[in-house]
C-alpha cells in the first residue's frame, strides 16, 4: 500500500472506485463496534463492514476490479453523522487518497483534510457521469490535479472544486495544522489573559 500522505499534496493518481448513495453516514463507513480500539491500525479491513455484509460480495469495496483504488467517487452529504475520524482513517488505510463527490459533511471534510486527503466537489450530473465511467472502465487510471482542479482519465476531464483555504493547506503541505498552531503559543497565552471566564470575570 502506498504511504500515507505527507507534505504538499499536488496530485492524487490511481484507479477509482464509486460508492453511490446520498447521506452515507460515518456509522456506515465504519460501524461503532470497530471503534473499540486504541489505535487506527486495523480499520482498513473494516471499512463499510455492514454495507458489505448486506451486499454479500457485491459492494464495490469487495469487488476485485476496484481493489487498489485510490480515488473514491461519492454523492451528496458523504460522511454525515458521527465525528469519528475512524471513518477517513479506515478509508485511508484501505487505500483511498482522495474523495470526489457532490458534497461532504463538515466534520468528515475537516477530518480528511487533517490527514492530507483532498475532498473535491463537482455537480450531481458530473458525479453521475464520472461514477458511470468508473463502473464501465474499472482499473483505468485517473488523476486528481490540485493545481488545475481537474479530475482526468485517459478519456475525459472534469472540473472540480476545492475551497481556497483547504486547497492552499493541501498544496503547501500545511494541512497538518499542529505546528502552525504551536507557533502561536505566545498569542494563545495573551488571549487567555483577555477571556473573562479564565480570570474570575475580572476583565471585560
Amino acid at each position: 500500500m502506498a504511504l500515507f500522505p505527507t507534505g504538499p499534496v499536488q496530485q492524487v493518481s490511481g484507479t477509482a472506485i464509486a460508492v453511490p448513495g446520498e447521506d452515507i453516514d460515518t456509522d456506515r463507513i465504519i460501524p461503532a463496534r470497530f471503534l473499540k480500539c486504541v489505535s487506527f491500525d486495523a480499520l482498513g479491513d473494516q471499512v463499510f463492514a455492514d454495507d458489505r455484509l448486506e451486499l454479500s460480495g457485491e459492494h464495490p469495496f469487495d469487488q476485485a476490479r476496484y481493489q487498489g483504488a485510490s480515488i473514491l467517487v461519492v454523492n451528496g452529504n458523504f460522511g454525515c453523522g458521527s465525528s469519528r475520524e475512524h471513518a477517513p482513517q479506515a478509508l485511508m488505510r484501505w487505500g483511498i487518497r482522495a474523495v470526489v463527490g457532490v458534497s461532504f459533511a463538515e466534520i468528515f471534510y475537516g477530518n480528511c483534510l487533517a490527514l492530507g486527503i483532498p475532498c473535491a466537489t463537482a455537480t450531481p450530473e458530473q458525479i453521475k457521469a464520472i461514477q458511470a465511467q468508473v463502473d464501465r472502465e474499472p482499473g483505468s487510471s485517473w488523476s486528481l490535479d490540485l493545481a488545475g482542479l481537474q479530475l482526468t482519465s485517459a478519456k475525459s476531464s472534469w472540473p472540480v472544486s476545492i475551497d481556497p483555504g483547504p486547497l492552499d493547506m493541501l498544496r503547501s503541505g500545511r494541512w497538518d495544522a499542529t505546528s502552525q498552531l504551536l507557533d502561536h503559543g505566545p498569542q494563545v497565552a495573551e488571549l487567555m489573559q483577555t477571556l473573562p471566564y479564565i480570570n474570575q470575570f475580572a476583565s471585560k
Partner: peptide, 29 residues
C-alpha cells in the same frame, strides 16, 4: 471574535478552545 488567536495562511482562523471535553473513544489515538 473573542477567541480568535490568529489568521492562518490559507484563510482559516486559529480559534482558542475554552473547554475541551474528552472521552475514551476519540482520545487514545
Amino acid at each position: 471574535d473573542l477567541h480568535r488567536v490568529a489568521e492562518l495562511p490559507g484563510g482559516s482562523t486559529q480559534l482558542f478552545v475554552g473547554l475541551h471535553l474528552i472521552h475514551e473513544v476519540t482520545s487514545p489515538q
